[in-house]
Every structure is written in C-alpha cells, then in structure tokens.
Design a binder for these strands. Structure first.
Length: 143
DNA sequence: TAGGCCATCTGGTCCT
DNA sequence: AGGACCAGATGGCCTA
C-alpha cells in the first residue's frame, strides 16, 4: 500500500476546530471525516480495479510498462473505434465474414504496428496517436 | 533534480 | 443526515 501524506492523519482532525465546538460535536465530526476518508479510499480502489480490468483487455503489445490511467482510457477509446470500423467495413463490403474478419484482425496484430513495440515517444499522447489513427469526427460510434 | 504518476485527504455539491 | 461523487491540494515514489 502506498504511503499516505504524513501531515494528514486518519483522524481527519487537522482542519477541524476543536475549540469552537463541544467535545461531542468535535468527536462526531472527526468520526464522520474518518468514515468519509475510508469510503473515498474504497471508492478509489474500486476505480483502480476497474482500470486494471480495462488494461487487461486493451492492446498493450510489447509494453512491459503499465499504461497510465490516461493512456488506458485513450487506448480503450482507440481500440473500440478500430473494432467498430472493422464491423462497419465488413457490413459495407458484405464480405464473407470469417475470411474478412480474419484479414482485418491481422491488421491489428503487433507485427503490423511496429510503432507499438516501442515506448520511446516523448509523450503518451504521441504513443497513443501512433497506435491507432482513428478520429472522433471520422468514425462515429453508432449506438 | 525535475517531471510524471499516483494515493490520500479534504471540502463542496448533489442525491436519497 | 449521510453517502456518492468530484476536483483541488499535497507529498511520495520512480525514472530520465
């Protein structure tokens, strides 16, 4: 577990004003703050669990380094767009499904995306943009 | 050592 | 009243 801010304790008492309230009210406020902190920690842990699950289903070819949260979201977005395009194109060309899908699937394999095997671009943004080139305005997701 | 990423605390707002 | 959610602040860890 990550270390926490030394100046902030679980008591949550730093910002409270003990002198302006009765001890009972102060204790109640402290207890509430502790409970709120615990809930917030739990909520964030749930969020991080969700991010981990997303990382597992999103392409991470050749990546030994874990994607950041931002990169994970960007990659998920691009991945969904790519899959959506495959389905849209398959429908449009009325291709024999299996053969068409296999061909399209091959296109998103690592060997066909050499840029994905490296993580040397200056920013994650560049990395994401080099991974998939789909744009919002070009490929609307029809729900 | 600076910058990126992250966990945690905290106060505010909205909802039940 | 209390819980969920959010955003800002802060400090720790890691890497180039």
């Amino acid at each position: 577990m990550k270390s926490r801010r030394p100046s902030c304790t679980d008591s949550g008492s730093e910002s409270s004003e003990p002198d302006s309230k009765s001890p009972e009210k102060y204790e109640t406020a402290t207890r509430r703050r502790m409970a709120a902190n615990a809930r917030e920690r739990k909520r964030m842990q749930g969020l991080n669990t969700a991010f981990d699950r997303l990382r597992k289903v999103v392409p991470q070819w050749g990546q030994d380094k874990k994607l950041s949260k931002y990169e994970t979201l960007q990659m998920a977005l691009s991945y969904i767009m790519a899959l959506n395009r495959i389905l849209t194109d398959a429908r449009r060309h009325n291709a024999p499904h299996r053969q068409w899908l296999e061909m399209q699937f091959d296109c998103v394999q690592p060997e066909n995306y050499p840029c994905l095997m490296r993580y040397d671009s200056p920013t994650g943004q560049d990395y994401i943009h080099s991974s998939f080139s789909y744009q919002f305005d070009e490929h609307q997701v029809n729900v």
